[in-house]
């Protein structure tokens, strides 16, 4: 029997990171909260099929990623906002570091962007990233290294 309390206990510690991760994709505070809410509901609906041998965090973040994609697809206006690197809608944010990181991430390839999001925003381990992306752990190591190099290059361009 998998209870609501059990699901809540697993979910609650992830919510802060989940919101940061969703925000890194959607670049919009309200939409990221909507995505987290939708993922919480969808995760609960599917909790019965969750394989206990897998990481709950990896399983749930894959659901959250899909919810973010659904939100992007549902709104053509949002699609422009989320995918065009030139457009940053965090106008209310006063955090330069966050804006700079989000801007540089938007200019990376999807593979590099996603693995960096999982590492820095979702705070996932290599095992969890491997499960979320369905790739071997060795690939996580090499891809993350290349993604870091690419991000450092973009950040130095942003700074200059």
């Amino acid at each position: 029997m998998r209870s609501r309390e059990h699901y809540d206990r697993l979910l609650q510690p992830l919510l802060g990171r989940a919101n940061a991760y969703a925000r890194s994709i959607l670049r919009n505070r309200h939409n990221s909260e909507d995505a987290v809410q939708q993922a919480a509901m969808r995760g609960w609906e599917r909790f019965g099929t969750f394989d206990r041998n897998r990481s709950f965090k990896a399983w749930w973040f894959a659901i959250l990623h899909n919810c973010c994609i659904d939100i992007i697809r549902a709104s053509s206006a949002l699609r422009t906002t989320a995918l065009a690197p030139e457009v940053i809608d965090e106008a209310t944010s006063s955090d330069d570091a966050w804006l700079q990181l989000a801007g540089a991430l938007a200019r990376l390839s999807e593979d590099h962007r996603e693995i960096l999001r999982l590492k820095y925003f979702a705070d996932q381990s290599y095992d969890e990233i491997a499960q979320t992306l369905s790739i071997p752990k060795g690939t996580v190591m090499s891809r993350l290294h290349l993604a870091r190099k690419a991000l450092a290059a973009k950040m130095s361009v942003e700074e200059s």
Binding site: R17, W44, W98, F121
Partner: peptide, 25 residues
């Protein structure tokens, strides 16, 4: 160099942290 970059990105990512309230019905 790697360590300093990592710390800066980690800190930037943390600045986006906030815990939303979720309802499951």
């Amino acid at each position: 160099e790697l360590r300093m970059q990592d710390a800066a990105w980690m800190s930037a990512a943390r600045s986006a942290l906030s815990v939303p309230r979720v309802r499951l019905g």
